[in-house]
Write a protein that binds this DNA or RNA. Structure first.
Lengths: 234, 234
DNA sequence: GGAGACTACTTGTCTAGACAAGAATCGGCA
DNA sequence: TGCCGATTCTTGTCTAGACAAGTAGTCTCC
């Protein structure tokens, strides 16, 4: 017999009633003082429940005004992108990687701009194909800022994925990415063993650590062999 | 000149030092009592900072043991999927929709199973193409559980998107979705005005409200005209 | 009528203290 | 040696009160 914590009781009540439509989107909800009176708990307890619901995006709060049911027009969901090696092995397949390119290059204009380095500055460039069992599932074309990961080219990428290594070198970072469908380049098609016009899921990710760009990567997945999964839970 | 709230100071300090690698993943971090002494604030203030970092996934806390830097192997990011109408208008385009199908059908085996209804039970089926200005950007093939949205077929989908309507009828829900690249069906290609082999971003979404399935949707986007954007910020 | 002061209500935050519960360590006892 | 209880440290949570700051309405005075 476990007693539910008071803040959880308040939170659960509000969540349930929101789900029932007691307060339609945009409607004013009970104030903290009213909830304090209703549940017989202290204001800090009510405040915690409300703050957590706010973080979860279920309510909006405005100082001086009140608490409102959130308009749930935007559907914000978490998409977990795991390290590819972990993901493949977690599904019971064997992962291996083939390194087709790992060298120092001078940055093209486009790469220099996105990596925040000077034109023609040295950058690291790797091109790696990842396999699940014997099937190629990802072609990873990546540029790395040498200032952030000087030892990048010394890594054995058949054993450690670039993502894994970069996470160790620069532990905290921000990433922006876009996901689209497209066709592979001729080289990508050849490396993945697919047709030039076969649809691919293309993820372009740019990673920044403490406002210094670390890496930009183009990840091309054959459409028939790779899925992104997501879940949304209020 | 705005003073930073004490809990934010503590949080920011911990975040910065985590980013610097002061506590590598798995390492024991300062206890609440130590942070209280260091910052001269009350324990509740420190506790709030730590709790928020925990929610953000940067640290792990274990009662009786201590606080630990989180192993940042998994990369969890939020992907926001907004209502298509809002997204198109927010970009300065005009949205309109053409309804190609809106009727009651008997559920096929596959639909019945995924919607949680009996085989041959009545379900609602809509097929709608969404345009940004005059360009088709999404083909929305959707089945709806009539028990959750009895009035679904009476909605004017040229004015209200199905997502928007369903959000009003059933305000809180959970969704699972998969994102993949593929080719459109012959009908989808015709409706979107694209080639039969053009790559498309296909989102399949299943929505559940209080453990009752509401709707399953297949959203097909021409690869050249639609992107998903995401961001990850620790 | 209009401007400004005042008031009431809201959320945002902090404090000092308290008790509970989980976990490790240490001492004593069989 | 091995087991058990006491101690201590940790996080988890709650309380009652306080002040700050944003907002809206009202009231007064010009």
């Amino acid at each position: 017999m476990v007693a539910i914590a008071p803040f959880a009781r308040v939170k659960h009540f509000l969540k349930r009633e929101l789900g029932r439509g007691r307060w339609p989107p945009g409607r004013l909800m009970p104030s903290e003082a009213q909830l304090v009176a209703r549940f017989g708990v202290s204001r800090m307890t009510v405040n915690r429940a409300l703050r957590e619901l706010q973080v979860e995006g279920l309510i909006e709060r405005r100082q001086g005004i009140g608490t409102f049911a959130a308009p749930l027009h935007r559907v914000s969901s978490t998409l977990t992108i795991r390290d590819l090696h972990d993901e493949i092995t977690a599904r019971g397949h064997a992962h291996h990687a083939v390194v087709h390119l790992a060298r120092r290059e001078s940055a093209s204009a486009a790469v220099a701009e996105r990596l925040g380095v000077a034109r023609d500055a040295a950058v690291f460039h790797t091109l790696i194909v990842h396999f699940a069992d014997a099937v190629p599932v990802q072609c990873e074309d990546r540029f790395v800022n040498p200032a952030c990961a000087p030892g990048y080219l010394d890594v054995d990428f058949t054993r450690i994925t670039p993502t894994h290594y970069l996470l160790e070198v620069a532990p905290l970072w921000e990433a922006q990415y876009s996901i689209e469908a497209g066709v592979p380049t001729a080289r990508e098609a050849r490396l993945l063993g697919i047709g030039r016009r076969d649809p691919c899921l293309i993820v372009v990710r740019r990673t920044v650590s403490r406002s210094v760009p670390i890496t930009i990567a183009r990840l091309v997945h054959p459409g028939t062999r790779y899925l992104l999964h997501g879940e949304f839970k209020p």
